[in-house]
């Protein structure tokens, strides 16, 4: 299969953009460009004349891409990849991974399939890394809050750390809430009172 498709990646985060470009280069496509934002996308499309535009589904600029494809009278008529529901699995996979592809110039599905697959794999990897990072950050934040709440109880009620935690846990269970929510409420209340 000839790897001569021209691909444009819309991604504001340069690290992410590089990541996707690397994945595409590794997979054998050489004609890959990235732009940070779509204001001026029309000019970019004219300049690069891409066959496919790849964009994160969470990117609000998707609506601008859509407009350029659907309404503009440009010859390069972009069509959302999801039009091609002939390949349901691929469409669902793209949706789950959060990748939107716009096919400029109505390419055959079999020609873009491997591009999309590469992009999906990379998006999934990034998504997973992102959510792991966020989970780790959140866990750390929660721990800090719970530690503060425990500290407040230890000071105000003169109890051990272990007893303070048990009290938080009991309050949470009694109220059908999470320990972190009870801790947060205590910290907020305490901040307001001091």
């Amino acid at each position: 299969m000839r790897k001569d498709l021209r691909i444009l990646v819309v991604e504001a985060d340069t690290a992410k953009a590089k990541n996707i470009i690397d994945a595409l280069l590794e997979a054998g496509w050489s004609d890959v460009h990235a732009i940070a934002q779509v204001s001026g996308l029309e000019q970019s499309i004219l300049k690069h004349a891409p066959d496919i535009v790849l964009i994160d589904m969470a990117n609000p600029d998707r609506d601008t891409l859509e407009h350029i494809g659907v309404v503009s009278d440009t010859k390069s008529r972009a069509v959302a990849m999801f039009v091609d529901q002939t390949d349901q699995d691929l469409t669902q996979a793209a949706l789950a991974a959060g990748v939107s592809a716009y096919v400029v110039d109505g390419l055959q599905m079999n020609r873009i399939k491997s591009v999309i697959e590469t992009a999906i794999a990379r998006f999934q990897m990034m998504r997973q890394m992102q959510s792991e990072l966020e989970a780790a950050k959140q866990a750390l934040e929660d721990r800090k809050t719970i530690d503060r709440a425990k500290g407040i109880l230890m000071r105000r009620r003169d109890m051990s750390e272990d007893a303070a935690y048990k009290l938080l846990r009991k309050a949470a269970m009694d109220q059908g809430r999470k320990v972190i929510d009870v801790a947060q409420a205590l910290v907020t209340a305490s901040d307001l009172l001091t």
Binding site: N59, D63, F82, Q92
Partner: peptide, 15 residues
């Protein structure tokens, strides 16, 4: 939803 196109796709595809 981050955009109208994303919302439309999610609705049309049953998510």
């Amino acid at each position: 939803q981050p955009s109208w196109s994303a919302l439309r796709d999610m609705l049309a595809l049953g998510h």
